Amino acid sequence: MIDIADLRLPYAVPTVLLLAALVFKSPAAIRSWRNPDSRVTWFVMLSASAVFVSVAPASLHKINTVTGVPNLAAPWTYSLLMSFCCSCMTMIITWREAPSPKRRRRIHWVWAVHAAIIVTLWGTFLLADLHTERIYDLDTYYANTPWMREHIVLYLLAYAVSTLVCAGLIWTWISEVQSRWLKAGLVFLQVGYAFGIVFAVAKLIAISARWAGTDWDFLSIKVAPPFALLGASLVGLGFLLPVCGPFLQTWPREQVTYWMLRPLERSIRKATPSLTKARVGRWAPLDLRLLQRRQHILDGLLRIAPYFDHSLYHQAYQATSAQRHEAKARGLAGAFAVRDALKACAEDTPRAAEDQPSRIGAEVTDHIVAISCNLRHPRRVDRIRQRLATTESVTANV
């Protein structure tokens, strides 16, 4: 078991973030598994998380130790990297093109090519003669070793080509994108891929220097890894932004609205216990639970319409509109009239006059959030009754 504390901060931060996103998105991915976008998004996060967990020095040593094969972490990590590149390219194609047989064939080719690269990586590794474990300088240390040389060059060239292809697909498409979240994600992707190219070039230069008999290992050991980490982090963020951005934008507001509507829903359910309760589990998507709560409230208002005193509502609105903004006055007057209607409904004493509307209008239904919030403060609502009583007393004396 890899301890996150052993991953070191540069590896731990993106790993934790990606794992958190993976866990968070997994239920939605399972529910919509037939949707190609959901599957690819989930696989991008899974492969990115696996890469970050595996490339940390502690993880590389653990893989070699557990398997008992020196440097087995190399093909393992490079295979995960190829899977990540494959899922990234698939995601971009899925975003760019509408579903069609042509898109399906293109995605199949992407997977077939990357799968062939992974098979070749394992084949060259098995043919190579590797006895000394190298964690930090494997690429340059074995740069002249038969078959391992081909192994290293293959993964670097494949990574560079895949990165360039993804960057090219984005470059020719980004000007057509209208969604700000998708465009922001594509910008992060472009910057991340640029860092990835720097990583591959630094590695290839260091290996070429070894072939020429020169020691430029610092490019591979010191320069390349930070670019790889930052580039992969930006690429992961670029894919997460279009998926999680709209959710993070609406979720806090929907969560607040959901809880703000709770007092009104509980009051309606208490006064009208025969209403059918929503059959939505607590782990259902928030937007569905919010929709059910709104619908339950509107159904409840429809049932208490015969008990709703419209004249009382208008009196309460007139008493509060002079001191409050219209929306706040509507919410407070609505809370006063709805509470009166709920009490009448519980006592089964209709209060609406025959000449009044038989339905509760938009002046109430459009302000159910404000009404629910005021029901949470009964003293605030009670002051309206006192104000109305004072107004009636003054009118009577006049």
Results as ranks from 00 to 15, higher is better:
201 V>F: 14
215 D>W: 02
198 V>E: 03
240 L>V: 03
199 F>L: 12
204 L>C: 05
214 T>M: 12
234 L>W: 03
224 A>N: 08
206 A>P: 13
240 L>T: 10
224 A>G: 11
221 I>N: 10
201 V>Y: 10
230 L>H: 02
224 A>P: 08
202 A>D: 10
219 L>T: 01
229 L>G: 09
230 L>I: 12
214 T>Y: 11
231 G>A: 10
215 D>H: 07
240 L>H: 05
218 F>M: 01
238 G>W: 01
212 A>S: 12
239 F>V: 02
222 K>N: 09
239 F>T: 04
208 S>M: 13
211 W>D: 07
231 G>I: 00
216 W>P: 08
223 V>P: 02
214 T>D: 13
217 D>N: 15
200 A>T: 11
213 G>F: 09
231 G>W: 06
203 K>S: 03
234 L>N: 14
210 R>C: 06
218 F>D: 02
222 K>R: 12
225 P>T: 01
209 A>W: 07
215 D>F: 03
235 V>L: 00
226 P>I: 00
229 L>M: 12
220 S>E: 06
229 L>K: 12
217 D>G: 15
201 V>R: 03
227 F>P: 02
224 A>L: 00
231 G>H: 09
234 L>H: 10
209 A>S: 14
220 S>R: 06
203 K>V: 01
209 A>T: 02
220 S>W: 06
215 D>S: 08
221 I>R: 15
235 V>A: 07
233 S>C: 07
212 A>Q: 05
209 A>R: 07
220 S>K: 01
236 G>R: 10
199 F>G: 04
211 W>H: 07
205 I>W: 08
227 F>G: 13
230 L>T: 09
235 V>I: 04
240 L>Q: 05
198 V>C: 05
209 A>D: 15
